[in-house]
């Protein structure tokens, strides 16, 4: 139950005085309460937990984090042990399917 997952806001409407939205989770659609992210608009991604959006997903930060991960690897290749990197690429990393 602790899981919170990102979904895309499809459309919004007020129900009983509360902002609600229909949110798409990779094909599964659910009614979600937008009380805590009231200015979310359709097309945006929000993080949803037990039927409530608790944050919007910040796409700029998401891209920046992924870019950082990429950069970590690039620097490693630049300064790291080239042979080791090549060997690691050739054989699937030990333990990944243990």
């Amino acid at each position: 139950m602790c899981l919170a997952v990102p979904g895309r806001v499809l459309h919004t409407a007020e129900v009983d005085g509360v902002p609600m939205a229909e949110v798409d989770f990779g094909g599964v659609r659910k009614e979600v309460c937008l009380q805590y992210v009231p200015d979310a608009v359709s097309g945006e991604y929000v993080i949803v937990h037990v039927g409530f959006a608790i944050q919007r997903l910040d796409e700029i930060s998401a891209r920046a984090t992924l870019a950082d991960f990429e950069r970590l690897g690039l620097l490693e290749e630049e300064f790291g042990d080239g042979l080791e990197a090549a060997a690691a690429q050739q054989s699937p990393k030990e333990g990944t399917d243990r």
């Binding site: 602790c2 309460c33 009380q35 805590y36 037990v50």
Partner: peptide, 10 residues
């Protein structure tokens, strides 16, 4: 935890 509490509070 604090993640779920806002839903229950609302």
């Amino acid at each position: 935890f604090e993640t779920t509490a806002p839903a229950n509070a609302m």
